[in-house]
Design a protein around this nucleic acid. Sequence first.
DNA 1: CAGGTACCCTGGCCGC
DNA 2: TGCGGCCAGGGTACCT
Length: 315
Amino acid sequence: MPELPEVEVVRAGLAPAVTGARVAAVEVRDARALKRHLPTSGDDGLGGHGVTLSEAAAAARSADFERRTAGIRLGAPERRGKFLWIPTSGASADGSPLALLAHLGMSGQLLLRAHDAVDDRHVRIRMWIEHAQHGELRVDFADQRLFGSLALDALRAAPDGVGAVPAQAAHIARDPLDPAFDDARFIAALRSRATGVKKLLLDQTLISGVGNIYADEALWRARLHPDTRGSAIGPRKADELLAVLRAVFAQALREGGTSFDAQYVNVNGQAGYFAHSLHAYGRAGEPCARCGTPIRRVPFGGRSSHFCPRCQRKR
DNA sequence: CAGGTACCCTGGCCGC
DNA sequence: TGCGGCCAGGGTACCT
């Protein structure tokens, strides 16, 4: 469940059960779910993204993660954009605190289950935790497509000096629901670029948490064509776009996120119902809710854009 | 900085 | 019933 509202639903669901809990045991079933986990000994010679691990490197990575995660105590989960992490009692080699970092990718789930609950599909990593109030639970990381991952990562001071963030998420911009998000800075960046506005919204180094669904929805609500250049957007329209984005996120959060199928669920495996409130994504051929013109779907960087050709004219 | 492509994966669905 | 092709909510690397 990948965009900001879905990740936030997971963070909030995890919070009561994991905060203050101790990890009793860890089992890595598929080392491919540790793409972002780099062993302590530094480099195992086979980096992270886009690289297939040798059998030996996979075993080493799994063993390293299991050994270092078992026994640590968990803090309150935090989120930036689509990255989720739990500060822990562990320390990294340079002395910084360790965080348990999660990215759900396209199909990742974090599921809270009873100790003896039956297996969900595609469980790649399992952690048994003990909590003073909630007793013994399992946290299962399930991921069909394996674009998501868990990792232990060093928690460092955030680049803007406010709070701390895992090293691997340091390049990710704050998201628009973050109180420290800098509106003026984002709007200036947006309006200085010749790139299409949708591509800018999806750039996690400018603003985080926005993915294909919510980009299309926000642009529909703001009546902006996805290919409108950032530099063609006036200050008032830019303000409106940011406000609309926040409203979409807030509403999606209230409705438990967007679920098109069983892949996108909260920590209890339940789907959200914001999909019913979408006006553009997944509605190709259906009449625009404002003007009745059929919603169009066009190729966009290996995916699709959905928009109303009448309400969202390219300028 | 802008654009395009390729890749990491599994599985559901559609047409033949 | 089988099979190939296409599609999917993300992120990164590496070209031009």
